[in-house]
Design a protein around this nucleic acid. Sequence first.
DNA 1: CACGGAAATTGACGGTGTCAACATCGTTGG
DNA 2: CCAACGATGTTGACACCGTCAATTTCCGTG
Lengths: 211, 211
Amino acid sequence: MAYHHHDLHRALVDAALDLVTEEQAWDFSLRKVARRAGVSHNAPYNHFTDKRALLAEVAASGFRLLQQHLFAAIADEPDAKQALFRLANAYVDFASDNPALYRLMFGPMLADGHQNRPDVTIEAGAKAKTVLVGLLQRGAAAAAFSFHPENTEGLETAHLTVWSALHGLASFVVDRKAETNLPEGKLADLVLTLLLNGLANPKNRESQDNG
Amino acid sequence: MAYHHHDLHRALVDAALDLVTEEQAWDFSLRKVARRAGVSHNAPYNHFTDKRALLAEVAASGFRLLQQHLFAAIADEPDAKQALFRLANAYVDFASDNPALYRLMFGPMLADGHQNRPDVTIEAGAKAKTVLVGLLQRGAAAAAFSFHPENTEGLETAHLTVWSALHGLASFVVDRKAETNLPEGKLADLVLTLLLNGLANPKNRESQDNG
DNA sequence: CACGGAAATTGACGGTGTCAACATCGTTGG
DNA sequence: CCAACGATGTTGACACCGTCAATTTCCGTG
């Protein structure tokens, strides 16, 4: 009955992460987290002002996991375009393997009444995006993409577009909302290929007819 | 005190829609909806098996609104590519104008334990997507896009890619998670332009430097 | 016009997030 | 060496929630 837990803050985040991955429920109760950590239902309030604050840290942990996953996927691929394919697949796989966590990370349950998200989550999310931005910069320097390395607007547009497409695709896959006859394992490749070639590029019209 | 409401089913959905748009809270309580409709907290159970069933119908209504919004945006634009720009902007605008409703439509709160969504929501969402698919078909027939009209796989890939990019972008805009210096009103144009031209298309490298 | 079923009500139960009051511990100053 | 204090954890309470059960009211049909 130690009244003083060593590091309850960390223990609670870990317990919440366990709950999310085990039960695949993004909507766990704060009391359940406390129970799993072996403390009373009010102990968390000494370390988190809110339930939202705990959720925010869980989401931040998720973004750190995503960042590592993406980085590991592209680490040993020198070609930027090939690395982008790896990153896309790694992104969708992460979401598909951790649906509840992914939903918590991007879902609306940590927005307050004014759609503002906690700083710790935003920061972790921005860091995860860094992996993509760095890759795009590398590719631009190698003249692999349609914008110059110094063109910051082009870089921002590119990273926003790719990140949007990845998040959108991952959301559909997670929600089983893809409703497509395309093979699920190749969705990321298909989407990224179209994004690279261009939907309005007529020179791909012949070559895409047979897979 | 009429014990028999005329059409409580509709009234409850409307009340919920009002709550979503007024309070901009996707997380309203079933009891509050009943209160707003002027009935007791258990009356809804005569018309909806679950709270989830009510949420599902609200989301379906949202998809119908989105469908109308998209259709109205492209109705009088014969050029497919121009219409696609209008659709993209209309999509992002809809999400930006109805953040709570948009989150409810695409968010995780109407998934059951197994990430399955109610049929009524899925159906309404598919119908909304029809607007985009029809537009893509029209453009393909006019040789505006990179796939042939008969190439169903190309069509599916295209509509999945565009829908993903739009949903991803809209999510970021709604969550104020875009974190970009690009002007918010032009995000849809920028993303769609890149998607049409192709991220790996070198011929756009020069022309994009100045906006 | 009785009556049976649909629709709405009240009441209850377990669960939740959060606040307030109290108990316990480690640490530090005399 | 120990008293006191602040941080940490506990118990209890409150309002609210989703949902089930029992009850009451109403309308259409025989």
